[in-house]
């Protein structure tokens, strides 16, 4: 238990540090790198929740594919658009009302009710066999719909670049 507590304390500290850095950096690439570290750390956290497959998916899909695609897209833009991103405090008092109210409500509810006793985790082992059972027996319709939805980005890319070719040739 002590090892788990110390590891989670270190991970929570790292999350706090990189969250603050991601918030206060003014260059978008530095901000992006902090968020990349946060995603990898989240993959490590999944290991502490017995979700090894999800941890691997988090690192491969998020950190490895989605965010790197975002990085390459960032390099398409001129650098003047990416640096000097100021925090716009003009609309802070109006637009930040909802998250601040939510945070105060949660804090008050915890303070009033007190911290409940911790749940004991049950011994479930989330392995590939169990995933494939759930995916292809209970969730086959969801998987089919997902395959359909994921074809949209490819179609959208094709349509946009086809239009670009037409405007370029005319």
């Amino acid at each position: 238990m002590i090892e788990r507590a110390i590891a989670l304390l270190i991970l929570t500290g790292l999350f706090f540090i990189f969250t603050l850095l991601a918030f206060f950096f003014r260059h978008l690439v530095y901000q992006f790198l902090c968020i990349l570290v946060l995603m990898v750390l989240q993959g490590v956290l999944y290991l502490y929740l017995n979700a090894e497959f999800l941890g691997a998916i988090q690192v491969i899909v998020y950190a490895g594919a989605v965010l790197i695609m975002f990085l390459f897209t960032l390099f398409l833009f001129p650098e003047e658009e990416l640096k000097h991103l100021k925090i716009d405090l003009k609309n802070l008092k109006y637009s930040s009302f909802l998250p601040v109210a939510l945070f105060i409500f949660l804090l008050l509810s915890v303070l009033v009710k007190g911290i409940p006793e911790s749940y004991q985790p049950r011994n479930i082992y989330f392995d590939l066999k169990e995933i494939s059972n759930l995916l292809f027996n209970e969730y086959w319709l969801a998987i089919f719909l997902l395959a359909f939805i994921l074809s949209f980005p490819m179609v959208a890319l094709y349509v946009f670049f086809k239009r670009e070719e037409k405007s370029g040739s005319s």
Binding site: T12, T19, S96
Partner: peptide, 26 residues
């Protein structure tokens, strides 16, 4: 408390509020 589920809830709240804050302020 540190070995229980509370660090995970704190971190998920942190990520959600970071996202909302960045979305609103920048």
């Amino acid at each position: 408390v540190l070995a229980s589920e509370y660090p995970f809830y704190v971190i998920s709240g942190l990520l959600i509020f970071l996202g909302i804050g960045i979305f609103i302020l920048k």
